[in-house]
Nucleic acid binder design. Structure first.
Lengths: 153, 153
DNA sequence: GTTGAAACCGGTTGTCT
DNA sequence: AGACAACCGGTTTCAAC
């Protein structure tokens, strides 16, 4: 079942700030705590809410460099995709990895300390995979926008 | 001041699951609740923790399509970058936008319902910006990995 | 940093409308 | 389905070690 407008309001508030209390949410949408509480439980149980996390400050923790990578695999080897996927999920530097359409196979988002750390990652981890044929790296110079919140209203 | 190993353990647990109680964290790192509580408050106050959010399930909410875009601006106009940045931050479809090095200017991550919705976004919102010279779109076919958690240990 | 206690507040549950 | 009230558990603060 798709969430109604009230549910969507709740989802939107929680994806902006998961620390908001049920009371605060209730007052914002002109309801009492009971229905808000029930709706949240329902949204969690039905899988509309995947998880609650905290977002850390990359820079303050020394992870100053973000790199988007385009990766092309060696399609001669039929096991290339499976091998690559399994290797990628184990790499903590890789935050996002998707198979994409177009003139390369994967789009990656990599977060590391600095250029030197990226060089290490590139040479010894990413290009070291036998399934990888080609990599293009795009270094983030300035982050204009970053949000985990999707449009729900 | 940089967080010590205990702080980093706490940060790692919270970026995996922000609902974990202080009690649970304390038992996992063999400490009592008081110091854990103090460390979390300190990490929040000093800005290592940016915010607490919930991550929604895109698919269940009908946002099935993710597209990475490479955007090139019209550099003849000196106000292009400022115009573009201001427009992008207002677009709820755009979750990530960064200035990057290489043969184009911006990398975007866009989340929409489907191909038709992307077409609408592309034609009427993104390419409608006067500062935009060229756009390349890479449609996500399969999401291999997605996490907001950076390596902190 | 630990323990224990107390106050507080939000989450949780049951009942009523 | 929403409002109200009582209970429970975790958070928060404090004191003493």
């Amino acid at each position: 079942m798709q969430p109604d407008q009230t549910d969507r309001k709740i989802l939107d508030l929680l994806q902006q700030n998961a620390q908001m209390t049920i009371k605060e949410i209730a007052s914002k949408i002109n309801l009492s705590v009971t229905p808000v509480h029930e709706r949240i439980r329902k949204l969690e149980k039905e899988g509309f809410i995947d998880k609650y996390v905290c977002l850390l400050n990359r820079r303050k923790l020394g992870k100053s460099l973000v790199v988007y990578c385009n990766v092309t695999l060696d399609k001669q080897r039929k096991e290339s995709f499976e091998d690559f996927n399994q290797a990628i999920v184990k790499m903590p530097e890789v935050l996002e990895c998707s198979v994409v359409s177009g003139n390369f196979d994967y789009m990656l988002k990599v977060v590391v300390e600095d250029g030197e750390a990226y060089n290490q990652f590139y040479q010894h981890k990413l290009s070291a995979l036998s399934s990888v044929l080609h990599i293009s790296s795009y270094f983030v110079i300035s982050e204009i926008k970053y949000t985990t919140g999707i449009a729900v209203l």
